[in-house]
């Protein structure tokens, strides 16, 4: 069964149509990359999937695990396993990262009717997941994303993803603003999460990230639609020729 099935999706933001008939099908176990020029609607797609208020779907359908996704509230989608790694993660002053992680995990567990983790169980789990991402105790005590460097913010997103164990991960330009070492750490973190049960959509502007997270399928997005799909070689081609050729194709 398809994990995610988007058909002819149209969506408005601020009264303007941004997604203009997008189709995309993702199966569990697959890693998809969505590439495209700035302003093509990549972040909009991720927000529509996560259910951000203000992103109005005007036509088309999105099915997730065979059910209508669009009727669910954002927190329900999260509990059902949809995770968005934000392009610009938000700051929450005064709330320790550790507290945030725990609140989020427990909120999801509660909603799924699962038992909450005890404090020692939780601490063990966080320590295990954080270690691999080079996140130390000190960082976990700091307020969520407050004063974090760009790299720290992105690693924090991946930590949340690792902890929440979603079924569908959408990574919005997780590579932007990262130096090569940070990029490798993040990519390694993502690769660890590749599994048969999980699908990952990597949104990126550059081909660079895809050397480290090798996708099964690459899509090119322009003007609110997927205009081409192919294997990893498509990313190489784009790197060589640029998006300009595709934009004419889409028009």
């Amino acid at each position: 069964m398809n994990l995610l099935e988007i058909k002819n999706l149209h969506a408005d933001v601020g009264g303007k149509e941004i997604l203009q008939g997008l189709d995309l099908t993702v199966k569990a176990g697959e890693v998809h990359a969505i590439m495209g020029p700035n302003g093509s609607g990549k972040s909009t797609l991720s927000y529509v999937l996560a259910g951000k208020p203000g992103y109005e779907v005007t036509q088309g359908s999105v099915r997730y695990e065979g059910k209508d996704l669009l009727e669910l509230a954002p927190d329900e989608r999260a509990a059902k396993g949809i995770f968005l790694a934000f392009q610009y993660p938000l700051e929450i002053p005064g709330v320790a990262t550790m507290t945030f992680l725990r609140t989020a995990l427990n909120a999801q567990k509660k909603r799924r009717g699962e038992a909450e983790l005890s404090t020692p169980e939780f601490l063990r789990l966080v320590r295990e997941k954080a270690g691999g991402l080079g996140i130390d105790q000190d960082m976990l005590k700091r307020a969520v994303n407050v004063g974090f460097s760009g790299g720290e913010k992105k690693r924090n997103e991946i930590l949340q993803m690792a902890l929440l164990e979603p079924k569908l991960c959408v990574l919005d330009e997780t590579d932007s603003g990262l130096d090569i070492d940070a990029l490798k750490i993040v990519a390694e973190g993502v690769n660890k999460l590749r599994s048969k049960e999980r699908a990952i959509i990597v949104i990126t502007h550059y081909q660079r990230l895809l050397n480290h997270i090798v996708p099964d399928i690459v899509h090119v997005m322009a003007k609110g639609k997927i205009v081409r799909s192919g294997g990893p070689e498509l990313a190489q081609e784009l790197e060589a020729c640029g998006y300009a050729a595709l934009e004419t194709e889409a028009a």
Binding site: K52, F86, P89
Partner: peptide, 15 residues
């Protein structure tokens, strides 16, 4: 901010 709220909702917290 709505952005802050949405960030939390996306992690599974209720409003």
């Amino acid at each position: 901010s709505d952005e802050q709220l949405f960030y939390c909702l996306q992690r599974g917290l209720s409003g």
